[in-house]
Nucleic acid binder design. Structure first.
Lengths: 338, 338
DNA sequence: CTGAAAGCGCTAACAG
DNA sequence: CTGTTAGCGCTTTCAG
């Protein structure tokens, strides 16, 4: 591999001159002729600057770190896709840590990515907010953007309009004629989980429907969580259980759906169900799930943009992607029986 | 952030001595007392060596590059998970390029990851083998492991036993009493696709069943591909179409299933279907898919191990993960009607 | 057992 | 307009 010195020698100039030209130094005053010689030499030698050497000098790595809980969660694919696309467009590399595969992931990230100087900034997606390490990193000045979370202490986050998406889902059910609408929420102390509950509440209130406590349950956003939440509502709702459910995560909706069928309830004839977040697979469940599709890929793109701003010194804001959620009506919702 | 000089100063030694101790230089002869002083100083200053400076000097980055086609393909989640786990265990970082999000991904990888010196080696998962750039990189001596592919020209690959998995799937169908078994294969010139076809062929021959050309179709391993392949067989198979299908990819199985249902065929009453590769979601299709589960996560782990060997100078082999595939019987297979 | 010195490949301030 | 110089933070001979 040719290095700068090789290029300079071949062009008959000093390495610093070659560097100026090849970096497109804005205050360069290089004669066009010299410039051409250097460019030619670089091309002929297939020169590419060594990233480590440059990074050591400039203190920038052009690399961002991405922390993601687990890749099998269907919801993350979209977000990571957006992140990858935006990063590539901005010519940044992405180092990924999948938390579920790495014991003590946040610790690892803060040592091997941040302290060792491998990244310019960090995108933390779907973190449980109580992770003190995240706050610590932010305090120490590491550029950092939270995705799908907000938390006091950390400035810089991107979320989608969870409340609006949830409202749309519930309004769809109410519009079909349902009055007893259950809510299977996410059992986590995150603003995201809260906003989804709020959306449900607002939609119900807006429709003039009083909510019964027995209609609500919370569980982790997993298939099993959804199953358990559904079981819990069915057990406590008494003689008049909900005729429809809004489930605040796609994975739990799948579990909830399975539980309904396992207990002999027909969807959508007996019970309707709509999930928060979409995925191609939702078209293939039994029955196909009605969902609200959130602009998750945009959320990922925006996170990169914000992070690069933060790296450049622009203070990070807390942003919400305003793109309208989209209701995807499939087969799991219908008017209530009777 | 403290650097080596700071540590050395605080311990009252030369940086080189501090380096020796902190790296655990095998031929160090440092007095235990000095050693302790250095270790203490490093601990107090929370010293971590700068990865760029070290890499510049040692020509090793402790980072591996991972090229993956797309994260929404359910099959990749497992493999990446295995890669992440093994990499973390070996204290290596992973730079990920999602090809579907990056225009001209291989070109990008070979410039920004390899030529710029950001990685010690490359794992290329599910690549279309005809990519000349991969072969070029291998020739230029970049340590490289192919996952789920073999190709002449590139040495170093990990695959699973596609043939055996396919045989198991088809034997399951034959065991249920099916004689007319169709094959929806992958339309790609890869050894992997070929081995799945071979497995089908062997199982049929082993059962003494002659194969009709009209039972076979190939398409890309996508939902739409599966749909089209199914349509093609249904169109060409005449009066006695297959009563069962082995579909060589999970995504196309989902499409094939959808197509069967769309054309009014009942699964498994009229037609059985079994897919190659499993995923939790397969339990929730309508009906739940019978699959063969391949040791994909192991494949990812092994790829990392092989790559690190290659980086260390051990010539890379072509390996097959011998762990037995597992038949996961769900609701999409049953004895033929009548 | 430890220190001095050189240099990985690059950039950036300063001179000229 | 271009070259000289001095590092970024680390490792690694070579001396002593």
């Amino acid at each position: 591999m040719a290095n700068l010195k090789d290029v300079a020698r071949r062009a008959g100039v000093d390495p610093s001159t070659a560097s100026r030209v090849l970096r497109n130094d804005p205050n360069q005053q290089v004669r066009p002729e010299t410039r051409e010689r250097i460019l030619d030499a670089a091309r002929e030698l297939r020169y590419r600057p060594n990233a480590l050497a440059r990074g050591l000098r400039t203190r920038r790595t052009d690399t961002i770190g991405l922390v993601i809980p687990s890749l099998d969660n269907l919801g993350f694919a979209d977000v990571t896709h957006g992140i990858q696309a935006a990063a590539a467009a901005a010519r940044r590399m992405v180092m990924v840590i999948e938390a579920s595969a790495v014991p003590d992931a946040m610790q690892d990230v803060s040592e091997r990515l941040v302290a060792d100087g491998r990244v310019d900034g960090l995108i933390v997606a779907f973190a449980s907010v109580d992770d003190g390490l995240v706050a610590q990193l932010a305090e120490r000045g590491m550029p950092l953007v939270l995705v799908n979370r907000r938390t006091s202490g950390v400035h810089g986050s991107v979320v989608v309009d969870d409340e609006r998406g949830s409202r749309m889902a519930v309004e769809h059910l109410v519009g079909l004629g349902h009055r007893r609408v259950g809510f299977l929420g996410i059992d986590a102390d995150t603003d995201t989980a809260r906003r989804r509950l709020t959306g449900y509440g607002r939609a119900m209130t807006g429709a003039g429907i009083p909510i019964e406590p027995g209609w609500l349950a919370a569980a982790p956003p997993t298939e099993d969580g959804g199953r358990r939440a559904m079981r819990s509502v069915l057990a406590s709702a008494g003689a008049h259980p909900p005729t429809a459910y809004f489930v605040a995560s796609l994975m739990s909706a799948i579990g909830a759906l399975a539980e309904l069928r396992a207990t002999g309830r027909r969807v959508p004839e007996d019970v309707s169900i709509v999930a928060f977040n979409d995925h191609p697979f939702a078209a293939h469940t039994a029955p196909a799930l009605t969902t609200v599709r959130m602009p998750n890929s945009r959320m990922g793109e925006e996170a990169v943009r914000m992070l690069l701003d933060a790296v450049a010194g622009v203070p990070a804001r807390d942003q919400m992607i305003e793109d309208a959620p989209e209701l995807v009506v499939r087969a799991s919702t219908a008017p209530p029986a009777g």
